[in-house]
Write a protein that binds this DNA or RNA. Sequence first.
RNA 1: UCCGCAGUAGCUCAAUCGGUAGAGCAUUCGGCUGUUAACCGAAGGGUUGUAGGUUCGAGUCCCUCCGGCGGGCCCA
Length: 435
Amino acid sequence: MSNGTAPSISGLSSSVGETVTLKGWLYNRRDSGKIRFLVLRDGSGYLQCVVVKKEVPEDVWESSGLLTQETSFEVTGVVREAPRQEGGVELGVTGLTVLSVCHDWPITPKEHGVDFLMSQRHLWLRSARQVAILKVRSEVESAIHDFYHSRGYTKIDSPILTPAACEGTSNLFETQYTEDEKAYLSQSGQLYLEPACAALGKVYCFGPTFRAEKSKTRRHLREFWMVEPEVAFMEIDGLLDLAEEFIKELTTRVLDRRKDDLKRLERDTTKLEATATRPFTRMTYREAIENLAGKGFPVKFGDDLGGDEETALTEGFDTPVLVTRYPSSIKAFYMQPDPADPEVALCVDVLAPEGYGELIGGSQRIHDHDLLLARIRQQELPIEAFQWYLDVRKYGTFPHSGFGMGLERFTAWMCGVPHLRECIPYPRMLYRIYP
RNA sequence: UCCGCAGUAGCUCAAUCGGUAGAGCAUUCGGCUGUUAACCGAAGGGUUGUAGGUUCGAGUCCCUCCGGCGGGCCCA
């Protein structure tokens, strides 16, 4: 190739007629006596390489017979059109060198159980489905950065090691910081983002988040990646617009650039197209519990919404649903009460369609110093630990809002994958931290 | 921690009423010049998770422990 880098399968459609040399691994092989079809995998794509006995030297033919699944090899050949192939090209092989024969590859082209695949996660990553998911994930990450940078946000890296108890230590991972001081792994960057938005106006953080909860469901990981914007002077309505615009843009980007991966995942993209183009449904918590009552879910004011309720709420909608103004009693202490309805908080949960559940949770933050102090006392949180957080309200306070979105939940929804564990390279789950 | 499900060949599963543990994939060997999870033939591969019990006889019934899966709680 003219750019001086090694050629890759993904760029081959423009090289028809040229002779190229590629390196990769054998994904699959089909033999038919004097002709062999080798499927080469190089991370960028898949390429059928055709070896015909009469057309190659004896040693090339013999080498091609040694290839087992995942054997690494180098192949040279002429790129030619092959309409039936993915990518529209195949390789007429003229030379082949085995780099390392793979013995006893454990993952066959047939089905496998979850337990087995999870214990082989480092190898499972090589399968076509996992590659497609990880490409979508990476696209989403890149789209997140682009979304905020193009709007003048500054990325703030919030700390991963945090001092004592912010919202209670029961769901925090504890680690020894010094001989006589403990530290905890961060479960949210939000508290650190709030002072930063007073410095920079519009900020966001994006990093790993740790939750030591004993959740054992398809929607939970103990280590996951969360993106959190925080905006000075933004109030609840601006936050709702931001959340909607954000999800729309990420969805559009994935549909636009990861079409092939979604196809491989057999994702029905018509549902995502609605998200990209149509306005999202918005409803208050009070409206939501009425809606649920009509569907046979007796939820009374003050009850939180479980997974079944969330799924029922989004039924009939192709786009995410924004549920706002939950009772303050079931939400975090820092959420601003609604002046028009003081029992509820100015908050939002964004529920994805198709049963994917909560993508985003966010709120307008309490900006009044004394009200926040009262809430901290009411929840019996250690005031000393929150002095710096209260300082945001002490020195030139201002309304501000933000939300958090789980990268894996968003990716799972885009890919139509039922379980979060496939949406992060090395999932950390309850009772499973290998490999 | 609670509720539910299942531990049989390297992997995915089957085994009727309690009566000689089988198949596909993978591996090895053989066949096939356009295959698409290719196909056809053959071979090797088993302490049925673990400890105990019932029985003439247990993969199957009872029970101990272990690890797994799904859900609840919690949240993104």
